[in-house]
Design a protein around this nucleic acid. Structure first.
Lengths: 367, 367
DNA sequence: GACAATTGCGCAAACGTTTGCACAATTGTT
DNA sequence: AACAATTGTGCAAACGTTTGCGCAATTGTC
């Protein structure tokens, strides 16, 4: 047995006492028709008054707003969404949120989205293509107004993206993207990052620089590798296959890779890793072999993870402008949502990386 | 100008080609009434068939399912939510998601929630009470079916929780909770964790054990401190105020705290920190002073952060059963949602911590 | 063969908004 | 004074489901 109680304006507001009787009284959330009934207005007028429509008199608006405040009226977003065909919700798919990078990107996304009055639904693909596809479906079913996506390691085909396009849901990729496509995206200049990091190692006197690379179908890994290769070439150093090792870049992968590289090329004098996790693995191996960092082997990585300043020595790394990436990605998405899906020409924003030089690569200062 | 095109069963399915003409054709998502029209059934019958209602004949069900598959019918969750008064969405509020702990809890939550067919909306309070309140409002407005909450550092009053109760939205707190209340919660036995860590330090021969503590209005910090204090007492060691330092436990706080403690009590021989971030700060100061870890000063912390195994020495820490916490919290919430908000008696689940002993505290092996 | 129970389906209302259209009252224009 | 434009409001349909109730046809029971 439920009671719905009208609470005329002017009566004292006991609402905050009602939690004392949770078992007896259920507060029915005031709806527009409640307001309308109490004010002797029609639902449509109230609705328009609430949205500050120009054809409603100031007097009426005032009455409506007052009662709305008094009854603590909160619009039913679901109803509005159903009617308008827009849910005011954005969907985000990231490979994972442990680890500094995506956590910060998500923070940037949330900040801006909330400011713009949007809710955010976050999904993790756990680096799994199938899960990523499921995530996308979930978001589409939840009727999100737009989707932000960073691809999982194992994503090779992009049919789920076609589905998004078919439904005309705005989509912005970030960081790990599909290249050469007309989907909007915001990425880091990974090539530049790799190039700068390796040039720095060369400037510090390194000549045999190994590379721990990631899956080459991922734009970020490919471009970082390309930056590595070009930096070598630019400084007339050979690109030696024996100095290369590709993996999924876990810490364990880093350890294994480093062992292998040492076996192949005992006299290497630096490592540039595609991420910091693998770099830490490599660091452990270097230490275990009794070599000094950076004197014998200099190290540089990518991502500027939190732990980079906590290891010994502290690790040189390329910063990825995480929050900025999140913010610009969501801004692009909001623009697409407002302008209509087909109005905005797809564009790619490229952010500039920033090399953070720390102990693990600063040889020159020691000699 | 929109076209809605019926696509009779049996016709070839060109849907995946349509993305070629995004400008001309907009695929109207098939709705129940589309199915009904094509099958010469009523909407209600189709609806019931889709949900496998017992009063619908198998033959009809089969026809419906087939066409649904063929048209790639996806139910409109918003409409269903509106009608049923349930959105199939859960809300989560965490202080932040950078850092291992909450990221893993969230992962646990997502896994279970998705399995149960629920969407998840994640909000960050950024350790700010006002933001936390806003988050709760946002979630309530989005009509979530239940809320999972871990309090921010600066949350002192709990009126926003009363609002949740008033609306009869199931609520489960986790980790950082309001104690002595009838709200369901799942927490770690922080007391036990503190007690074990400090007992371990004592067993390793430490006698003047300092404590880096957090805000004492937070249950977790208070209990960890209590565990520390009781372990000392149990082993007949004095509780010396000069060995205590309380802060917000940032890495910077850890550094400052450690400096202060050293100034007050130069001959301390161990530190138990309420979290690992502050412990790392402390570690840096210990090293800077030229003292050996663990021989001169042993270290133990709380949270088992990723970087604990990457520092040198590796840090002893109490593991918090992150994913398990997320999973049980969301399970409790789902139960409350299914059974009805007032049916389930509030209960508190306490998880047992696990002390992970690493180099930073293993004195006995060295001597 | 009369009646009850079961099976299979449709009607229509409801959830809480938004919005095109209509209409009356007021104001402005000549 | 006649007409147009503007202002303020209401009616009703629509968004896509779910669900209580009703009704006919079928099946089962004695």
């Amino acid at each position: 047995m439920w009671m719905r109680i009208f609470w005329p304006i002017g009566w004292p507001n006991y609402a905050n006492l009602l939690f004392l009787f949770p078992a007896f009284v259920s507060i029915h959330r005031a709806s527009i028709s409640d307001l309308a009934a109490q004010l002797n207005l029609s639902v449509s007028t109230v609705s328009r008054a609430l949205s500050d429509h120009s054809r409603i008199s100031d007097a009426t608006k005032k009455r409506v707003w007052e009662l709305a405040r008094h009854l603590n009226y909160q619009p039913n977003q679901l109803a509005a969404a159903l009617r308008k065909g827009r849910s005011n919700t954005l969907g985000v798919v990231v490979p994972h949120i442990d680890g500094q990078f995506f956590a910060l990107v998500v923070k940037g996304i949330e900040t801006i989205a909330n400011q713009a009055g949007f809710n955010v639904m976050i999904c993790q693909s756990n680096e799994d293509a199938a899960q990523e596809q499921k995530n996308i479906e979930t978001l589409l079913n939840a009727q999100v107004d737009g989707i932000l996506l960073s691809l999982s390691l194992s994503t090779h085909d992009f049919r789920h993206l076609e589905e998004v396009r078919r439904r005309e849901i705005p989509l912005v990729l970030f960081d790990r993207v599909v290249e050469n496509t007309d989907v909007s995206a915001v990425v880091l200049n990974d090539y530049q990052g790799g190039y700068e990091a390796v040039s720095h190692l060369i400037a510090e006197g390194c000549r045999r620089i190994a590379h721990l690379g990631g899956p080459q179908h991922l734009n970020i890994c490919k471009n970082r590798y390309q930056g590595y290769a070009d930096a070598l070439q630019r400084h007339d150093l050979p690109l030696d296959p024996l100095l290369l090792h590709f993996s999924d870049l876990s810490i364990q992968d880093g350890r294994q890779g480093m062992e292998l590289l040492f076996d192949q090329t005992p006299h290497l004098d630096a490592v540039f890793s595609c991420n910091d996790l693998a770099l830490v693995g490599a660091m452990q191996v270097v230490k275990r072999r009794g070599l000094r960092i950076p004197q014998d082997v200099a190290l540089a990585g990518f991502s500027n993870e939190l732990f980079d300043s906590l290891t010994e020595p502290m690790l040189t790394s390329v910063d990825q402008r995480c929050e900025e990436m999140g913010r610009t990605a969501v801004q692009m998405l909001l623009e697409m949502i407002q302008e209509g899906p087909t109005k905005v020409a797809p564009r790619q924003v490229v952010l500039q990386p920033k090399l953070l030089i720390r102990e693990s690569s600063q040889r020159s200062m020691l000699q």
